[in-house]
Amino acid sequence: MSARLLVTALVDPGSTIALSSAQWTALIAIARAEQLIGSLAYRLDGLALPEPVENIMAAARASAEQQRLRALWEAEMARRALAPLAVPVVLLKGTAFVAAGLDAGVGRSIGDLDILVPRARIDEAEAALLGAGWERIKADAYDDAYYRRWMHELPPLIHVERDRMIDVHHTILPPTARPKPDAARMIAERIELGNGLAILSPADIVIHAAAHLFADGDLAGGLRNLWDIDRLCREFGERDEGSYLRLVEEAYAAKLGPHVLRALRLTHHLYATPVPAYHQAFRLAVELTPSDRLFLHRLLARDAWGRPIRSVTRFGFYVRSHALRMPPHLLARHLAIKWWKSRRSA
């Protein structure tokens, strides 16, 4: 048993007709654990489902719709706070999907608001948000300094009344990571939504999702991330036949070519993302590589109770996530400070 059950239900909702009661229970637990219950609920919408499942899915759709409204409202609040600065405000991740009405936003769970602003204006942006009711939550001076020195975003801020977090990014990967995407170009090529907010270009949205998954993190929530990428690629590919070529071209320019190609191989394998068979001088190979199999092993690591399994693989990716973020000497220093602080507070 693995999270393959969830993947199959998302790709082929009609196949759920054959599920046993025990498999339904497992599917629901796994979908919740991977934060894909809302996406699944929309995929199953309109099918004849067992009554308890239909009740759960109807509630999941209502909950996703509520999250969508709250996310849009939160984006509008940020827009109002930042409007006096006349600075581009680019929505990222789930909020961008729902604000632009993309398929990837259908049923998506959305937590924090993520925005991208030009690095040169980030201090002004922070001051404007602090003036509009957001507050710092990282009280610890080291953590605060760590964010400002080594991260691609400000320490998270939380709104005092609405209790919602905002992550203000100045680029899409920590400055210590090896790939150095050009945030200024991404902001320059943004797509205005006409309401004072913007999203990244189609290629950059996918690049950001792939970078977030494979160059910055331990693959937690990976199935949802790849589901985003599948939905995005399908929609952009239908609109524009050249979208994959532009995506790969931009990805290599951002030194994220291998990350995007891995994302395409894995979404093709898991979610049957249609990748066009180009017959030019280069082709997108969708055959899995040996290392892809390790990624799959990690992505599908859930049992029927929704529990994380395959702890060795999980730990491996956890270690990798730190190695990706920081060169070894910096990592050693960071862990030493964290250890010393934890001893002092104990």
Binding site: S21, T25, I28, P50, N55, W305, G306
Partner: peptide
């Protein structure tokens, strides 16, 4: 006993 459980609780 429900055939399909809405919520899973684990005592670990």
């Amino acid at each position: 006993e429900p055939a399909i459980a809405e919520f899973t609780v684990r005592l670990e």
